[in-house]
């Protein structure tokens, strides 16, 4: 299966029609079955289309978006549902904010090639800023059947909490997609400690979309990537493809036969020692 992660860098966002046309043009070139957009895609589009006023201070604008999200999400999902149909692909359109019973969650959706919503995943860990904004944590992780591949969604800060990848792997994940938005600067040096590290200790594939734009006073600079176990990637890097200057995406073919082979030759999860964890983890996690 051919997959891509897109950073949204350079795409026009102000008019839905322009955004859809530019995204479609890029997706047609990439010829992928799955496309993943970065975290904050919904917030970014909502703001760019003038629904939130002037974006200056990031947290203040995000608060405004949280209040607006209930009305906005329908438009956001319809737009991306149409894009999934038009491009005949599975689409994870980044993240949005979802309100339920007065609580706000950061949520990603998986849209099928028929444009229908196949399911959603709520972010399970929040960073300090997100906690300060009054967001809530999701409490469950799901897997979706994506053209025969069991697929999980790892959102934002969940990439840095390895429990998420381990749960998905032990539930049978073949592939995880990640919607991220790493701030430019210091954070970038340890991007491999996120999804890359989760791939290496779980032997699934990952499609990592990182936001490549600025919003108000905040710049984002993570790098999109398609990741696999080191042993089945060029130079043992763990990367099948990475975003580069002038190429705001990463795209690659996932060869399941290769992954099955390395899982058979080097069955990492079978080396886990539950008897050493069982007595300690429940008590410590409390």
């Amino acid at each position: 299966m051919r997959v891509a992660a897109l950073s949204l860098a350079g795409l026009p966002l102000g008019e839905p029609a322009d955004y859809a046309a530019a995204l479609t043009s890029l997706l047609k070139k990439l010829q992928v079955r799955l496309a993943v957009l970065p975290a904050h895609t919904s917030f970014l589009l909502c703001a760019a289309q003038g629904h939130l006023g002037e974006i200056s201070d990031f947290p203040d604008s995000f608060k405004a978006f949280m209040q607006k999200s209930k009305d906005w999400n329908e438009e956001y999902l319809q737009l991306h549902g149409r894009l999934a149909v038009e491009n005949r692909l599975y689409l994870v359109p980044g993240t949005t904010v979802e309100e339920e019973g007065g609580r706000f969650f950061i949520t990603s959706y998986l849209l099928g090639p028929d444009g229908k919503n196949m399911g959603r995943q709520r972010q399970a860990h929040l960073n300090r800023e997100e906690r300060g904004l009054g967001l809530s944590r999701g409490g469950e992780l799901s897997l979706f059947d994506l053209a025969g591949m069991k697929t999980g969604l790892i959102i934002g800060t969940d990439a840095r909490h390895p429990e998420v990848g381990r749960i998905l792997a032990l539930e049978g994940a073949d592939l995880v997609v990640h919607c991220g938005a790493l701030a430019a600067g210091r954070e970038l040096a340890f991007q491999p400690a996120g999804i890359w590290a989760q791939v290496q200790q779980n032997q699934f594939w990952a499609v990592e979309a990182q936001l490549g734009r600025s919003m108000g006073n905040r710049a984002f600079g993570g790098q999109c990537a398609v990741i696999g176990p080191c042993e089945i990637t060029p130079g043992f890097t763990g990367y099948l493809d990475r975003e580069a200057a002038g190429k705001p995406f990463a795209a690659a073919e996932l060869r399941e036969a290769d992954r099955r082979r390395i899982k058979s030759d080097y069955p990492l999860l079978k080396l886990l020692r539950p008897e050493a964890y069982r007595g300690r983890l429940p008590e410590l996690y409390r």
Partner: peptide
């Protein structure tokens, strides 16, 4: 960025390892 989600952990740990 470090966080803890006891609800999530209680749901899955340690029985998630029983699949192995």
């Amino acid at each position: 960025w470090r966080d803890s989600n006891p609800v999530l952990y209680r749901r899955y740990f340690p029985h998630i390892y029983s699949v192995l």
